[in-house]
Design a binder for these strands. Structure first.
Lengths: 190, 190
DNA sequence: GTCTATAACTTGATAGAC
DNA sequence: GTCTATCAAGTTATAGAC
């Protein structure tokens, strides 16, 4: 692995642990066994690291959305696919996801505006799939915005709880979260 | 309203907007029409403000948990009551909830440890109610930790989306979120 | 590419006049 | 209680030797 990549990876961890603002370039330099000033042979500035983390994940999610939109599938299957993708990403790369979710607001302009526009676009496309499901009677008649944000929010704990005593394997965890969101907490047919 | 309360209120808003670390005492002073040094006639230090916001909300939730535990009710009704309390709090006091949820990690010791212990205790009591529901067959046989975190997380968007174009009134919004979490997205009996 | 040295600035907090 | 003045420490980032 080259030094630049090592810097990006350690920076992501550091931003996750302490938050972007509280993570200093001296902290980061120490972790990659450099002096702070030497970092600037590899990067232009601190915020550039944040930009890359956020931009890469935005592309990652947008490309997944494109694949899902092209599927021949019901809204229900599409939503299941998107949830699955979010959950797997959160488990595979919890560090980047945390930075992407919690630290984007420290982006400088124009990157902050670009990030928000990209997120709005993603949510709009997700909302359209939900709306189709509601219209067809596949989904409960609940406001699509409420559905959208409750689903996306409902899986946001996964990347924080990596070391939690949850006995499930990856697949079991994913299945149960999706079952809970799609079928609800209440057991029917009692 | 006295100056001390005004400082606390503006600080909460500032922490919400910029994050604790990025919110400076000079920012805060400007908002309450003081010089930064004058703030210290009302408070001892910056972190003291964060302590109070977090501690007050911890008490708020703990007292609600005590009332729910004393109810003569099924686990299902208790969970509904707790969700309702969380949702109402998020809508009534989104600013404090944001700080409580996102900025607690900037608490200094021993307050940080106290906060985490209090949160662990709250979650443990919530988990016990969920476990009772699963055992009685009222709830789906899903890991109680997964249920706990998915429910709590599923309502975490509410305090961020105050100005969102969601056409519902308070009660409609609350009802729909709870319906979605308890009964699921999929419509049954089609 | 890495270092030392340092510029330029912001931070939380204090001292002391009024 | 509020101010001016200031401190000590921390910040990102650059200049220039090697």
């Amino acid at each position: 692995m080259n030094k630049k990549q090592e810097i990006y990876d350690e920076a992501a961890k550091l931003f996750q642990e302490k938050g972007y603002g509280a993570a200093s370039m001296r902290d980061l330099a120490e972790r990659v066994h450099l002096k702070a000033s030497s970092l600037y042979s590899h990067i232009r500035k601190k915020e550039e690291i944040l930009e890359k983390i956020c931009a890469d994940l935005a592309v990652w999610f947008t490309e997944a959305m494109e694949r899902v939109e092209e599927m021949e599938a019901t809204p229900r299957e599409k939503v299941r696919e998107l949830l699955s993708f979010h959950i797997r990403t959160a488990m595979d790369d919890p560090t980047s996801i945390t930075v992407f979710s919690d630290e984007w607001k420290h982006l400088e302009e124009p990157y902050r505006s670009q990030f928000l526009a990209s997120r709005r676009d993603y949510e709009e496309r997700f909302r359209r799939i939900i709306q189709a499901g509601v219209s067809k009677g596949e989904f409960r008649p609940i406001d699509p915005n409420i559905i959208l944000y409750t689903l996306l929010s409902g899986i946001r704990w996964l990347h924080h709880k990596q070391r939690l005593p949850i006995p499930q394997h990856r697949e079991g965890l994913e299945m149960q979260v999706i079952e809970l969101l799609l079928e609800g907490l209440s057991k029917k047919n009692q």
